[in-house]
Design a protein around this nucleic acid. Structure first.
Length: 559
DNA sequence: CTGACTTGCGCC
DNA sequence: AAAGGGCGCAAGTCAG
């Protein structure tokens, strides 16, 4: 049985949903929606759901146990098309363009925090401001703009838009399922690092002792180590004049206060960022549920909101523990960005260096540099725009052996310095620069400040083409993986099958029944291989993964 | 008091 | 003389 190919959903009022099923309008109540979606999803391959914004539709469907296979997220598509260099903005424009520009995703964490003091918001209050947006009109304008893009470029953009929309589904499913988090393990780790949980408002015993030692060593009984100005004053009184108070700077100093200061800083950060308060605020019923925001970063990387989900410190990763009878599969791509650089620049030599699994070692073996750490410095320096120090010198060696890759970066940097837009492999455009330097011709003498900003923007566009292209490879990877994981599960909702629980730029965590862990490992590898083929076709490049299966993130993370 | 900015550091 | 990209978050600082 084949079902409809495309269904557009539009909210019309408090309990009024319009579904346009292959062009035919059907009116629904909000309460009928989940069953309606489930019924069509069960026909054939399922339709492509077209809606204004996944965060406004999918969470309630997931809560009702309904998963969809494909969607088109008009908000995300709009944002990509608005900046894509290949798109004719006149074709894309509608009367509502500015409103679509401003449409922001609904945040589950913000909604929860906001309703803590006030009453529960009605569901419709969250939707009311988008009933005015005409999804059908926007969809038509987007498709027209896409149709006007030249052939190969259009195909790539379509890949990007599909990956972006699939990412929106993954993001909602990850928040729905949550990252398994053992509060008891977390508390034991905090006790080990910081001492027993202190009474409210008091510092943990370990921090208090370290602070006392630092104050004693500096003869500054009221020192606030969190205040750079205060700390600099105290250091100056004992004859030390560091340029700043960063840890790396302080560690160069020869003074008794240094050790307790650095230890205090490290642990007070743990306490402030991921301490007992964090645990109470963010972990409920054994799950941590931040908001995941596909395309939340200009480069196309995902952002996250709520508890700093993308920087879970390594010491706390043992608290991420699979449920009883389940496992975590942790997979990360080795040296994703330089591999992507090889592909987007068409540098077959760099691809060959990557073929052995360790790209940096391959660079050494090619004779470009002498040691692996030099290779890493050179590659990272080229991608980030290092011009001085050992990084800068190493880049010159790299350029001799891999001219195409390095030239690709230099061209991106030069374009940025001219104020031009650069583009990722699939066609995501960089933002236009702002600032006084953009008003001047490059050959006119500029102020020091303008020159600095111009070079800084060049470093940004240099990195944009790599970071952004890597982000779209990774987005394709998880989109393909999501499909494979769904097929592995026999039945049941997303959270009862193998499912993604975290995505960290080039790393994924999958929560899976133990019996399926090996299948998940194969799926993760297969998806990476298919992503490479999907984006780069015949270009001979591998994406080796480090994959581990374990009970906790720490067990499964190379340990 | 709030809000904007700075400093510093966790992650990739 | 120094010169490295992207984030989120907490705490301090400072202006209004």
């Amino acid at each position: 049985m084949t079902g409809p190919r495309e269904v557009l959903l539009q909210r019309r009022g408090p309990d009024e949903v319009l579904a346009v099923v292959d062009g035919e309008a059907v009116a629904l109540g909000e309460g009928e929606l989940a069953a309606f979606v489930a019924r069509l999803e069960a026909t054939g391959a399922g339709p492509r759901w077209v809606w204004d914004d996944t965060t406004r539709w999918y969470p309630s469907l997931l809560a009702a146990g309904v998963r969809v296979r494909r969607c088109l997220d008009l908000r995300l598509v709009h944002r990509v098309l608005r900046r894509a260099p290949g798109v004719d903005q006149d074709v894309l424009a509608t009367a509502a363009t500015a409103a679509w520009d401003e449409l922001a995703p609904l945040s589950a964490t913000a909604a929860t925090a906001g309703s803590a003091g006030g009453g529960a918001e009605g569901l419709f209050d969250l939707h009311v401001h988008v009933t005015a947006l005409d999804a059908a009109a926007e969809h038509a304008a987007q498709q027209a703009a896409l149709a006007a893009v030249a052939g190969e470029q259009r195909g790539r953009l379509q890949l990007l838009l599909a990956a972006e929309s699939a990412g929106a589904l993954v993001a909602a499913e990850m928040t729905h399922a949550g990252l398994p988090w053992r509060a008891d393990v977390h508390e034991a780790l905090l006790a080990r690092e910081l001492g027993p949980r202190p009474p409210a408002g008091e510092p943990p015993a370990v921090l208090a002792a370290l602070l006392a030692r630092a104050r004693e060593a500096l003869g500054a009984p009221s020192l606030n180590p969190d205040s750079p100005a205060d700390l600099l004053r105290a250091l100056r009184r004992v004859g030390l004049v560091p340029p700043d108070t960063r840890s790396g700077t302080l560690s160069q100093l020869d003074h008794l206060a240094v050790v307790p200061l650095l230890e205090h800083r490290k642990l007070s950060r743990l306490h402030a960022a991921n301490g007992w308060r964090w645990l109470r605020e963010w972990v409920h019923d054994g799950r941590y549920r931040p908001d995941h925001l596909p395309g939340g970063v200009v480069s196309g990387r995902w952002a996250a909101q709520g508890g700093g989900a993308l920087s879970v410190p390594a010491v706390l990763r043992p608290a991420v523990v699979a449920d009883e009878g389940w496992r975590l599969v942790v997979a990360d791509v080795a040296q994703l960005e330089p591999r992507v650089l090889a592909a987007v620049s068409g540098d077959a030599d760099l691809a060959r260096a990557a073929a052995g699994g360790d790209l940096y070692q391959g660079v050494v073996d090619s004779g470009a540099v002498a040691t692996r750490s030099d290779a890493k410095l050179a590659v990272l320096g080229a991608m980030y725009g290092a011009t001085a120090g050992s990084g800068g010198r190493m880049v010159e060696h790299l350029a001799r052996r891999y001219p195409r890759a390095v030239e690709h970066l230099e061209l991106a940097a030069a374009a940025g310095e001219r104020g031009e837009v650069v583009s990722t492999w699939l066609g995501r455009g960089s933002p236009r620069p702002r600032g006084s330097w953009t008003q001047q011709a490059p050959d006119v003498p500029a102020s020091e400040a303008d020159l600095r900003e111009r070079r800084s923007w060049g470093r940004f566009t240099r990195n944009f083409v790599v970071q952004g292209s890597a982000a779209e490879w990774a987005a394709s990877w998880i989109a393909l993986l999501r499909e494979e994981l769904w097929r592995l599960g026999a039945d049941g909702p997303v959270e009862q099958r193998p499912h993604l629980v975290l995505f960290l730029h080039d790393e994924v965590l999958v929560h899976t029944p133990a019996a399926l862990a090996d299948d998940v490992v194969a799926a993760v590898r297969g998806a990476a291989e298919r992503a490479g083929w999907l984006l780069y076709g015949e270009f001979p490049l591998t994406f080796p993964l480090d994959v581990h299966v374990g009970r906790s993130w720490a067990d499964a993370d190379g340990g």
